[in-house]
Amino acid sequence: MAGDVLIELSRGAGSGDGLQDTKDLHRGRQKVGVMLALPAAVLVAGLVVFPIAEATYYSFTSWNGQTAHFVGLSSYSQLLFHTTAIGQIFRNNLAVVLSIPVGLLFALIAAFLTSLRVPGWRPFRFVVFLPVALSWVVIGIIFSNFLTPGQGLDSLLGALGLHRFALDWLGNTHTALPALLATFNWALFGVNTVIFMTGLASIPPEVVEAARVDGAGFFRILRHIVLPLLGRFVRLAFLVTMISGFSGMFGLIYVMTAGGPGFSTTTLEFQIYQDAFTLGNFGQAAALGIFLLLIMLAVTFAINMIGRRRAADLW
């Protein structure tokens, strides 16, 4: 939902059309406004904004939880140039991003079919959206079992006569990441399908009707009206999935692979946990956390820019 954040921010959030009150009421309104907003603002300041400021500070120190010495950018240079697996970790994060369009394409197809209102669309929506209720831990435990040699997937492949694909999916450095990403996209398939269904439902009927009157066929309508109007929903789906993959997948990795074998499924997010809580290297973990935040902000910003330019071209 971060897409909305920037959209919202750039539009001057919290404003809107002001109420035209008399002066007295005006003052009363402001007082009540501050009163109602204050508790949330204080909690966010203390529990989110202040810690992020601290994390930024600690990222310039060698902090072990007790003492912090200022070390400048050394945590960052250590991180970028002297961490054994940093290349691998970045490649893993890139793989997360690259897997998203594949997942989105399937979700788009499913949403389109659902929007045709064919019999059975309701139960279908119920089934695909269901993983929303499941935790990464539960999903991880289920899929670890499913992918264990001799269990679910193996038996299925065996039954289909595809014995040669019966692998130790999670135990092999080449297949662990693809298996993890398939599970990840499985889990978010329903969310994306529902986002696209909403997008399809939001297209004004008159526009489609007008095009049809003008003689446009089914595929022309799809290509020139439906897909362009879905733009902001594609952006939302991409961002929701990416944020989840960069900073919400911890539980899945923890349960399925613990980052291994080797570093083959370690992402930035998982490395922060490792640095901080298994290695006790808080300074470096903080640096990595700031780094991850910057990457996410940059990608969000870039996607909003792309979306905006496209929209401008259209009008």
Binding site: M1, A2, V5, E8, L9, A13, G14, A37, A40, A41, V44, L47, V48, V49, F50, P51, I52, E54, A55, Y58, I243, F246, S247, F250, E269, I272, Y273, A276, F282, A285, A286, G289, I290, L292, L293, M296, L297, T300
Partner: peptide, 20 residues
């Protein structure tokens, strides 16, 4: 204040969990 609050949605939990 609203802008700052909303921007906090972007922050990965891992980034703040240690100072927290």
């Amino acid at each position: 204040v609203f802008g700052v609050t909303v921007a906090c949605m972007m922050i990965p939990v891992e980034s703040i969990v240690i100072p927290e």
